[in-house]
Write a protein that binds this DNA or RNA. Structure first.
Lengths: 341, 341
DNA sequence: CTGTTAGCGCATTCAC
DNA sequence: GTGAATGCGCTAACAG
């Protein structure tokens, strides 16, 4: 393999100057830079990453860590996430590493090892929870990270998020405007920050309309089709006063609700109205639901690019927080799954 | 961070000796080793990977490369694969890296970059095809790799595979024994080595029974539920002489076949018999098909551990090929999806 | 603009 | 058994 030394010999320059030319330093004559670049190309020079890392103290690698397999998100989402991140980090010359720990390991232990051994320069945090230990640890150790979501609405860390409180508020308000007053919400698992944000939006919309918050109508489940099915069966079949509308945390849940309603011989929106938030996952098309589903929508797939960019900036340092935070756009799409009562 | 130098100072030993003690060299007194180990633990010594890499010339990282996003396998399979590999490589102290290239890149270019920059010490190759360019490249450059499958039945490289020819032969023979003579095979996409192996097994079983090979009955499709559905609709509805039995490359395809048969108002096994190979994916349970599906089965999830082990051995070097190759066990499970004709 | 010097942390000669 | 010396390939002071 060609090294800097080889290049310097071939060019009659010092190793230092070759290094500077290659790294785009300003104090190199244009002519020299030309020559060096060309020689590098001809001799197929590729920098030795290990050496660079040793001297820079960085690994050039960022990672996504799962404590264990059961923590890995459901299928499509995982593919979207890993592929999207891998792709965009590559654009920033960062290696992307997936790390799945063992069941037995403590959550933070995995992070500690990765940080201490300088294996990773930065982390991607998914599904932040309230008082997230990972975030606390990385903060304390001053390790760069970017969060998909926020630790809190005013979090002082790099993140990409959507306005989840607004999403839930919007959906709830829409139903209220159509005359609904018994509105169920099949939300995600509690302690996830976005779930809490949505709960706030839901509660606020109800309060604004003078509707009492009924905790039996707000359920926390894993955001899967089967959970949606189970919960709506409960609503439809077993509840004394059946809700007239259901808000679903995502389209998977909505799918389950559709199936349950159909199985019960009821109809949407005739017997029950349904709305959801749509992450625009590849596998589900809320427009092709029958009837087409009214949703708030934001493309999850568009979050990876800013995430990668923000983490790259955090690692480079010197960027103001504002350039490492973004609230993605959300649109409200009215279709045919809501009836006026 | 604690370095070897710190340890040596604290212990009054030379850096060399500390290094030797930590790395389990034989020429270190037991007493010294004790002391060093203890000090390392107390001072929380963690070797600097970059330094180690620089001197060893290795990256300590292995990877799975996809040319681009469209090459990533369907959902569940991808999760199984990445999580399984990541987990078992960790046991061998190898970092696992997922790399998804850009659409525009040449297949080999990605590998070349990764090899030349010494980013990866070894590769995992999935879905080998006949005359696989990746395998050719890695061989030529003498880079360690392990294949899920084989380049050819007698391949001289590390691999984990099952006997795909035998699988297809077994399924076909079973149908023949039950009197079937028009047997369709919904196989995977051509050029994949396992698809060709299965085709051989299928053809051989037919030949042994004196049944002419009818190429219109052997179709190559992506191994998805929808493809299974489409192809069997073709068989059932449009074919002059409908096949009495269908062999499916996996349970996804079988699912599609079941749906098509049901949609056509026909029954399994009354109107058509169905068998499949079952990778025992988490999401599909062939036993709970209606009727329960007769299959050959092998657990895909059991392939990651040997794969990781074999690649680790290939990187370490000095292992005979036999210790880096394995044919996983396959069982035949007869259930209720085949009728005697 | 360019070259010299030094050192990142570690493992491996080679001596004793 | 142990230590001193050397170098992996690269970048960052420091001089000129």
């Amino acid at each position: 393999m060609t090294t800097l030394k080889d290049l310097s010999r071939a060019l009659g320059l010092s190793v230092t100057q070759v290094s500077r030319a290659l790294n785009g330093h300003s104090d190199v004559s244009a002519a020299t830079r030309e020559r060096v670049m060309e020689a590098a190309k001809i001799l197929n020079y590729i920098p030795n990453i290990a050496a660079r890392r040793l001297v820079s103290g960085r690994s050039g690698t960022v990672g996504l860590v799962f404590r264990n397999r059961s923590e890995v998100p459901p299928d499509t989402l995982f593919v979207e996430t890993t592929c999207g991140l891998s792709e965009f980090f590559a654009e920033h010359d960062l290696q992307f590493m997936l790390h799945v720990g063992r069941l037995t390991d403590d959550e933070i232990k995995v992070y500690r090892r990765l940080v201490d051994s300088r294996t990773l320069d930065g982390f991607v945090i998914l599904n932040p929870v309230v008082d997230d230990r990972r975030i606390a640890f990385l903060r304390e150790r001053e390790v760069p990270f970017v969060v998909h979501g926020r630790a809190a609405p005013d979090s002082a860390h790099p993140y990409f998020d959507i306005d989840n409180e607004e999403v839930a508020h919007r959906l709830t308000r829409h139903l209220i405007e159509r005359g609904h007053r018994r509105i169920a919400f099949i939300n995600g698992l509690r302690s996830l920050t976005f779930v809490e944000a949505r709960q706030r939006g839901y509660a606020r919309a109800l309060a604004e309309a003078g509707i009492a918050y009924d905790e039996t109508l707000h359920v926390a489940v894993e955001m899967t089709e089967s959970a949606g099915l189970v919960e709506s069966v409960r609503f439809v079949a077993h509840m004394a006063e059946r809700p007239t509308a259901v808000i679903c945390g995502n389209t998977r849940i909505a799918k389950g609700v559709y199936r349950a309603v159909e199985a019960a011989g009821l109809s949407i929106p005739g017997d029950v109205s349904v709305v959801a938030h749509d992450d625009l996952l590849f596998e589900f098309d809320s427009e092709r639901f029958n009837p087409p589903l009214t949703v708030t929508a934001s493309a999850l797939s568009e979050s990876w690019k800013p995430m990668a960019t923000f983490l790259a900036r955090a690692i480079d340092g010197g960027y103001p927080l504002a350039q490492m935070q973004e609230i993605g756009r959300t649109v409200f799409i009215e279709r045919a799954s809501v009836a006026t009562v």
